[in-house]
C-alpha cells in the first residue's frame, strides 16, 4: 500500500543517498524532462540541454552533493544547478547547435518552423536571465506563479511583473519582425 503513496522529492533524495536506485530512478523520471526543456530553452542547444540535465543528476548523486533540505526544495536546488551550468555554457560563447538548426532535420520542425518562431526563440534566449527564466517556467513549462516563485526564490508579485515585462519585450520584438519593410523610391 505504501508503494502507492507518491514520495516527495526530499524523501526520494534521502533514500537515494542510502543507495536506493529505485528512488534515484523515480526522482530522475519526475524531474529530468522539465530540466532538459528548461536547459534547451535557455541554452538553445539540445546537446547542451542533454549535458546539463545529466550533469545536474551527476552532481546530485555525488557524495559531495550540497543539498540541504532546510534551505529549500530539492526541485529548486536542481533548477539552481541547471541555471548555473547554462550560465557557464553561455559565458563560454555562442552556442553552435541551435534548436532551430537541429529542427532542420526534423519533420515536425520543418512543418512548424517559420521565421517568426525562430526569431522569437532567439529573442527569448537573448533576454536577461531574470526575464528568460520566468517565460520558460511560466509560459513554456506552464508552471504557476507560486511554483516559479518557490523555484527562483522570489515573491509571487515579482514573478508576475517580470513575466509581463518579458512578454512586452518579446511582443515588441515580434512586432518589429512583422512590420512591413519600407521601400524608398525616388
Amino acid at each position: 500500500m505504501s508503494a502507492l503513496i507518491p514520495r516527495s522529492d526530499e524523501e526520494l533524495y534521502r533514500l537515494m543517498k542510502k543507495g536506493n536506485q529505485d528512488a534515484f530512478a523515480q526522482l530522475y523520471a519526475r524531474r529530468v524532462p522539465a530540466l532538459r526543456r528548461y536547459a534547451l530553452h535557455t541554452s538553445g542547444s539540445p546537446a547542451i540541454a542533454e549535458e546539463v540535465a545529466h550533469e545536474v543528476f551527476l552532481q546530485l548523486m555525488s557524495p559531495n552533493s550540497r543539498y540541504d533540505e532546510a534551505k529549500g526544495s530539492l526541485e529548486s536546488f536542481l533548477y539552481g544547478i541547471a541555471r548555473n551550468l547554462v550560465r557557464v555554457v553561455r559565458r563560454q560563447g555562442p552556442v553552435e547547435e541551435a534548436v532551430d538548426r537541429a529542427f532542420e532535420h526534423d519533420i515536425l520542425g520543418e512543418l512548424i518552423s517559420n521565421e517568426a518562431t525562430a526569431a522569437l526563440h532567439q529573442t527569448l534566449r537573448e533576454l536577461p536571465e531574470r526575464y528568460r527564466d520566468v517565460v520558460v517556467l511560466c509560459d513554456l513549462e506552464e508552471r504557476s506563479y507560486e511554483d516559479v516563485a518557490r523555484l527562483i526564490g522570489r515573491p509571487v508579485g515579482t514573478v508576475r511583473s517580470r513575466l509581463h515585462r518579458a512578454r512586452a519585450l518579446l511582443s515588441a520584438k515580434l512586432k518589429r519582425l512583422n512590420a512591413p519593410v519600407e521601400v524608398y523610391s525616388r
Binding site: 534547451l40 534548436v99 529542427f103 526534423d106 527569448l124 506552464e142 515580434l174
Partner: peptide, 18 residues
C-alpha cells in the same frame, strides 16, 4: 495572443525535441 501562440509552438518543439 500572437505571442502566446508562438510560445506554444516553441513549447511543442521543445517537448518533441527532448
Amino acid at each position: 495572443r500572437e505571442l502566446s501562440q508562438q510560445l506554444r509552438t516553441i513549447q511543442a518543439r521543445g517537448v518533441a525535441l527532448m
